[in-house]
Design a protein around this nucleic acid. Sequence first.
DNA 1: ATGTTC
Length: 478
Amino acid sequence: MDMERINDYCWKIPRHGNMRVDGVIYASKRMLNDIVNDESCQQVVNVACLPGIVKASLAMPDIHWGYGFPIGGVAAFDIEEGIISPGGVGYDINCGVRLLRTDLAASDIAPKVREIVNHLFREIPTGVGSHHKNFKLGKEDLRDVLKEGACWVVRRGYGDENDLAHIEAEGCIRGADPQAVSERAKERGKDQLGTLGSGNHFVEVQVVEEIYDDAAASVMGLFLGQLTVTVHTGSRGLGHQICDDHIEIMLAASRRYKIELPDKQLCCAPVTSPEGRKYFAAMAAGANFAFANRQMITHWVREVLEKTLHMGPAELGLSPVYDVCHNIAKFEEHMVGNASRKLCVHRKGATRAYPAKHPEVPAVYRDIGQPVLIPGDMGRYSFVLVGTEKAMEETFGSTCHGAGRLMSRHQAKKICRGRNIEQELLEKGIIVRGASRETVVEEVPEAYKDVADVVDAVAGAGISKKVAKLRPLGVIKG
DNA sequence: ATGTTC
């Protein structure tokens, strides 16, 4: 692949063949070597061929191969001439991350971590197909969750207005239509609200290990040695089914609208077409289910910590720092050249990273920029960043989303033969409870890139700024 | 990611 250097952290695949715009990849030179030899590079080129794409087909340093569009990709399309595509969002609609802060020092509760992990594991269903036996939504309630997102959960008494103020889009994407969601998707979702799922999803008890930006950390209520909890999950079977249903519809739509596709998996429809509108309405509903999911899990994290530590809410001081999506398509205003344009921004394995002063950043963060939450693997660390003006100028206000896989699940299993990963992590001071040995093995830290490399690349490029590093103490995995 | 090939 022909690659031109823009700067130390930014590389261009010049427009060629059917590409309508350039490809642009954010990575250090060292990381780029792996990326160039990966199939995901061709996916960046393929996306650049889609109608109405604006400026460039973008990729973050954690890019890897995905369904049609690369994971770690950002693609913005003109509302009038552009398309919307389920492959540009991914199967796990509104997969995302929520960081919860507390008033506690991790050292004070260290002897209790195992008990906390065990209680979390008992209260939050984990693993493929996990669901609640005694917490099922009726048809009307599920409809309201799909329309209202986290607001519905708070209305039912699980959390408060302050929680909602610290969620991207306040936990509710407007334009969601439950009627655009199939009965089958609803059937899969009705007993999965407040469940974790599998793969890289987790609830993790952490300690703030390093602070890079004192002022920003202070505004976020973060301090050195602090106990925090991170929730990483999405829209479960419901979102998966929405994606499946609409890929089917989009395959037909692509033919109907005579959209030339370099890869069938890029199937899409004009943003303004009935198929495009219906997908957006269903995707927004799936996104709202995921916001509600993380809000529901937050409630159980609160309960577990209060009970295990014998504390009231005031003493615990648990509240969300922020909650961000990294698999979503949104309608946003961006400057393109000298004009402000309304675009459909697809972020798939990419996180919104708005700068200070942006009207969509919560008032409390208006001076520091939007918090960005980057989970790493379970053995190393996670990062808190903030968005920047440069992200707004270059990447439609977007940045990376995580470590990115280095090995397939199969490869991971192979290198772990005869090893006890739980024991190895325990020796590093990390208590792990997984739904099965298999998932723990598939998520072995060596299977992932070092998230510090990913974060240093986006910080080096100037599209995010480092605020804090979090180290795991205990984790539940699907 | 996913009732991991409805």
